[in-house]
Write a protein that binds this DNA or RNA. Structure first.
Lengths: 180, 180
DNA sequence: CATAGCTTTCATTATTTATTGAAACTTGAG
DNA sequence: CTCAAGTTTCAATAAATAATGAAAGCTATG
């Protein structure tokens, strides 16, 4: 199967962006390809469509599985493995967030906490600790929020989207009521 | 000036993480260093503290300026340039988000829109377009939301954070209000 | 307008990261 | 057990990215 121009452009774009989302170009392309392809694909089809080596595909698959972004299908009487996205677009985006949090934010929080537990030995360290404290709080807030968003039901999400620029207003309203 | 062990560890960690946030290791280190250092630093001091070349610092500064993360200070009677973070931690995080949106999400949205405008020529393209449509909507929602959050006043943010068990409550609240 | 003191540039070099492809491995069927 | 059809591994190589440092570029001051 060969990609149409439009689909090819999309896959290549995923490659460019992929490197910014935590994996490399090829893996981004693989991910994009699997997303826009209706039927699950074999490793050879992927290698073919992207003009990359079979070995490279194998490594990419391993990586995408470690991100929990793809799953394996089997067809009875066929020994090949067929790969497809693991879930909806929203599911996949959530996975990427979760994994990145695990790989980037969690270790940072841990380092910051360790650092903040020890007493500051001088003014330089005192100032540094203040800054680290701010970073720590920011990261905690962000993660609390993102996990909150992930927990929402599709309907709540819908509702949230439609709220759009209104969240400020709802907050004001809430504050007004609580004061009474 | 030489860094304490603890501060050095933090700076190195910023280096590791930096590469995941859009810049490279050295630039991450520079950013971390400037954040935990109370006084603005000269390019030579930075090169010294991180054991990197003067030229490298110059390039890093240019990059950090393009992200609007640092600003220049001048001391009367001194021709050197002194660098310091441009704003609070929250300001800096916002800048990184904005810049990444500009560099990653906006071009993707534009590609997706172009693609969705053209008619699908066959079933493969039709399916691909459906998927692209979902990605498009997801990205739009995310960007709308993040810009919304950035617009909130610090007090509103505070209020939002304290909501405890979450955004779900805000939604319930909004629904209650709308029904009346 | 010359110079000292600083910054930037960029060709070269070093380092890191990704890719290939052949060999090793796995597994189901006969 | 052996083969065939597949998958994975990994040492070698290629490609991309980052760092250096010498030279060129600026600019405030005398």
């Amino acid at each position: 199967m060969t990609l149409s121009d439009k689909n090819f452009a999309f896959v290549m774009h995923c490659g460019e962006m992929g490197s910014r989302w935590g994996f490399n170009r090829t893996i981004g392309q693989m991910c994009g390809l699997l997303i826009i392809t209706k039927e699950p694909m074999t490793a050879n089809e992927i290698a073919d469509a992207l003009s990359i080596s079979r070995g490279n595909v194998s490594m990419g698959i391993k990586e995408l599985q470690s991100w929990r972004l793809i799953k394996v299908h089997h067809i009875p009487g066929d020994r090949k493995e067929y790969y497809a996205p693991a879930g909806t677009i929203w599911d996949m985006a959530n996975r990427v967030f979760e994994e990145r949090k695990k790989r980037e934010i969690d270790p940072t929080l841990s380092l910051l906490r360790d650092n903040l537990l020890e007493p500051a030995n001088n003014d330089d360290e005192k100032f540094a600790q203040q800054q680290m404290h701010e970073i720590h709080d920011l990261l905690e807030t962000v993660t609390k929020w993102s996990s909150e968003l992930q927990r929402l039901s599709p309907e709540q999400l819908q509702s949230l989207m439609k709220l759009g620029s209104g969240i400020g207003k709802v907050l004001d309203f809430k504050d007004k009521i609580l004061k009474k």
